[in-house]
Amino acid sequence: GVRVRALYDYDGQEQDELSFKAGDELTKLGEEDEQGWCRGRLDSGQLGLYPANYVEAI
């Protein structure tokens, strides 16, 4: 996976979405899909989806 850092807070709206705060680091686990979602893993171990444009590569 690729380490990325959140640029903005994001509150997951669905069960399969991650929630994070600006500045949090997570691991991107795949390329974004056509809707702009990426699969990732928080350092807590939680897996889920997040909007790709909310993070930057570290």
Rank of each mutant, 00 (worst) to 15 (best):
G1H: 15
G1V: 10
G1F: 07
V2D: 12
V2L: 10
V2S: 11
V2C: 14
R3G: 02
V4L: 06
V4W: 03
V4D: 02
A6T: 04
L7D: 03
L7W: 02
Y8P: 01
Y8Q: 10
D9T: 12
Y10N: 04
Y10K: 03
Y10L: 07
G12S: 12
G12H: 07
G12V: 02
G12I: 01
G12E: 05
Q13K: 11
E14S: 12
E14R: 12
Q15P: 13
D16F: 13
D16C: 08
D16V: 09
D16W: 09
D16Q: 11
E17V: 14
E17A: 11
E17R: 14
S19F: 06
S19Q: 04
F20R: 01
F20D: 01
F20P: 00
F20K: 00
K21D: 07
A22N: 05
A22K: 12
A22C: 06
G23F: 03
G23C: 05
D24S: 05
D24N: 07
E25R: 08
E25V: 14
E25F: 12
E25Q: 14
E25D: 05
L26T: 00
L26C: 00
T27W: 09
K28D: 06
K28A: 12
L29P: 00
L29N: 03
G30S: 12
G30P: 05
G30L: 05
E31L: 09
E32T: 12
E32P: 13
D33V: 11
E34V: 10
Q35E: 15
G36H: 07
G36C: 02
G36R: 04
C38N: 02
C38V: 11
C38Y: 02
R39M: 11
R39Y: 11
R39G: 04
G40N: 00
G40A: 07
R41W: 05
L42V: 07
D43H: 05
S44I: 03
S44A: 08
G45L: 03
G45Y: 04
Q46C: 12
L47I: 15
G48M: 00
G48L: 02
G48I: 02
P51H: 07
A52S: 13
A52K: 12
A52G: 14
N53R: 13
Y54T: 10
Y54L: 12
E56H: 10
A57Y: 06
A57W: 07
A57M: 15
I58F: 13
I58G: 10
